[in-house]
């Protein structure tokens, strides 16, 4: 729209999707990301659920769709700013200023800091990992314990830093159940003889193809599902991890020694987003994610007509949702800027 300037904060899947839409509608677009690469979390994953599509392929598709006219500023963080009627002023980390007519917040999420669940010993015991580290191992094509051995047994623990009032997190992070099942299957392919367990409270297989993946994990991949949350972990003298849980289905406490414990950590609002939201006058929900106007309708809108929200900065999302919301938020912004000027 005749050269109006829109800034997108965050070049993850949601930001990328939004940036592919707006230039074609005539906007001048600047996309800023504090990391040095495009793609946000997507750039860290290996294969995607539910169909195990390569993350690199999706990332390439998303970046290919971004027109050359979009100016991308990588390695730069938006640290503050203000919103007034019809205008947005942003401050970057080196003190630089940017003015825009519209803003898309696509700041995404951070993974829960697993060290906070002290009872699992992440950062203390050698062989306690997060699922993000497992993705990295898949990318490197090498699964091994901290002592460079091939693991003979692995346990996943669901809901670490999600659904946990002690950690101050009431919500479900939505993608970790299916990620745990997906990773268990991938591990099985690399480690045909290993014992692989998933310890869960509920398995939330809500998306298309998710429940089927779970069923395959049981039938074809011999993944053992235990309905009980791990209450504590300890390290044994050989560096393996001893876990305790209750098998709630037989009502018996259970002890198990595994070579690797993988924590399926939850999603949290991106670091600094609380402060940034406060400076911009954006509202947060009880869960500290940015709060849109509605939870069913108008899920991109804020109280400002020229500021919209996209992707997982509003709460846990799948890629599908992040991409869809990026595009929709761009359209919503276009509609309201159009209304404002006509």
């Amino acid at each position: 729209m005749d050269g109006k300037h829109i800034v997108i904060v965050g070049a993850g899947p949601a930001g990328l999707a939004a940036s592919s839409v707006l230039p074609r509608l005539g906007y001048r677009v600047t996309m800023i990301d504090r990391s040095n690469t495009l793609g946000g979390h997507l750039s860290k994953w290996y294969q995607l659920f539910p169909d195990r599509a390569a993350a690199t392929v999706l990332l390439e598709q998303l970046t290919d769709e971004v027109p050359d006219s979009v100016s991308t500023m990588l390695g730069r963080e938006v640290t503050g700013g203000s919103v007034s009627s019809g205008a947005v002023e942003l401050t970057l980390d080196h003190g630089e200023h940017l003015s825009a007519n519209g803003l898309i917040m696509a700041t995404g999420f951070d993974l829960f800091d697993a060290r906070r669940k002290e009872e699992y010993g992440y950062g203390i015991y050698d062989n306690v990992f997060t699922q993000a580290e497992i993705e990295e191992m898949f990318r490197q094509g090498q699964i091994e314990t901290r002592h460079h051995r091939k693991p003979r047994s692995i346990a996943f623990l669901h809901c670490v830093g999600s659904r946990d009032l002690k950690a101050g997190v009431a919500y479900c992070s939505k993608v970790c159940c299916v990620t745990g099942v997906k990773q268990a299957i991938e591990l099985r392919e690399l480690l045909p003889d290993a014992a692989i367990y998933n310890f869960y409270m509920d398995l939330r297989m809500f998306g298309r193809g998710f429940e089927e993946l779970y069923q395959q994990a049981q039938e074809r991949y011999n993944i053992r599902f235990v309905r009980g949350r791990i209450s504590e972990a300890a390290e044994s003298s050989d560096g393996s991890v001893i876990i305790k849980a209750e098998d709630t289905l037989t009502s018996r406490p259970l002890k198990l020694t595994v070579d690797m414990l993988v924590l399926l950590t939850g999603m949290q609002p991106a670091a600094g987003s609380l402060e940034l939201a406060a400076k911009l006058g954006l509202v947060l929900g009880d869960d500290s994610f940015l709060k849109p106007y509605g939870l069913t309708q108008q899920t991109f809108k804020t109280s400002y007509p020229h500021v919209v929200l996209a992707g997982s900065c509003t709460g846990p999302t799948t890629l599908t949702e992040a991409i869809l919301s990026g595009r929709s938020a761009a359209m919503a912004l276009h509609e309201s800027l159009f209304k404002l000027t006509n």
Partner: peptide, 8 residues
Amino acid sequence: IGCGSCSA
């Protein structure tokens, strides 16, 4: 929610 942490 019957997660069994307490009993474990």
